[in-house]
């Protein structure tokens, strides 16, 4: 089931450049947490440290602790591959595997990780596609390539692919920024359904979206260009959008930033 994330004193680097500094927060299991903030403030970088994708970037390095239900993701002997099986991710641009069919795309995470019987795979693929609200649209063409779908469908395919491996946490990096309002609505509804099963963290530039989908909202900012990004505050979404405790947050969400 969903797991809690506890971050304390997290700092991330690209080579010698410090991208984010000293971030601490708690994400409750089964909740939706939104990250907002200006471009370049390190929201995505921070998100990527939560499933050890940050270190995939050349020069990427992390200090501090990320506890997933009391287990440190950056502890000695922790395998990043196992971390990523617990903490799934959906990217900004839909990225289905071009050589695989819709079915194979959803089954990819399972197939590449172990042996499953065909009937088991069928059940999991159907369940995941239903979970991503895509089943009715693609059930008759599961063997067609995934890249033939529309952008919104591709993104839901990517979500189906991510939830097929049954992660405990789902990270979403601006999942709707390349989509039209209707596809966005479909994905926002989906987030509401998925939060019963997964802990969800979503990065977004759309403040209405953050207000609509999230239970808690974290505001990130950076002091100046070239300075590392910092967590300014994290609170219940309602409170952040009505009565934030920091002036900078209010300026940002009311459009008076800068």
């Amino acid at each position: 089931m969903a797991k809690r994330i506890d971050v304390s004193g997290l700092t991330a680097f690209y080579g010698s450049h410090k991208a984010i500094e000293d971030i601490s927060m708690t994400v409750e299991p089964g909740s939706v947490t939104a990250f907002i903030g200006p471009s370049g403030c390190g929201k995505s970088t921070f998100l990527r440290t939560l499933n050890r994708m940050h270190e995939v970037t050349p020069g990427g390095r992390v200090e501090g602790k990320v506890l997933l239900d009391d287990e440190d993701l950056y502890g000695t002997g922790v395998d990043p591959v196992s971390v990523r099986r617990e903490v799934g991710m959906v990217f900004q641009r839909p990225n289905p595997f071009p050589t695989m069919s819709i079915f194979d795309n959803v089954a990819a995470g399972l197939r590449l990780n172990g042996n499953y019987k065909k009937s088991e795979l069928n059940d999991i693929v159907e369940k995941s596609l239903k979970g991503a609200n895509l089943w009715n649209e693609v059930k008759d063409r599961l063997n067609k390539p995934g890249s033939g779908l529309s952008g919104g469908q591709q993104q839901r395919l990517c979500i189906a692919r991510a939830i097929a491996v049954e992660p405990k946490v789902l990270l979403m990096d601006e999942p709707c920024s390349a989509l039209d309002p209707i596809s966005t609505l479909a994905i926002e509804d989906l987030i509401g359904e998925l939060k019963e099963r997964f802990t969800i963290v979503i990065v977004t530039h759309n403040m209405q979206q953050a207000a609509r989908v999230s239970d808690r909202t974290a505001f990130f900012n950076l002091a100046a260009v070239g300075q590392p990004g910092r967590l300014i505050e994290i609170d219940d979404t309602e409170r952040i959008f009505s009565n934030p405790s920091v002036q900078a947050t209010e300026d940002y969400i009311s459009g008076r930033f800068g």
């Binding site: 994708m53 990523r84 595997f97 990780n113 491996v165």
Partner: peptide, 14 residues
């Protein structure tokens, strides 16, 4: 595209 590698790594594939 690097996105494909990342997509696969994020699924917990070695």
């Amino acid at each position: 595209p690097n996105e494909l590698r990342e997509a696969s790594l994020a699924l917990g594939v070695p």
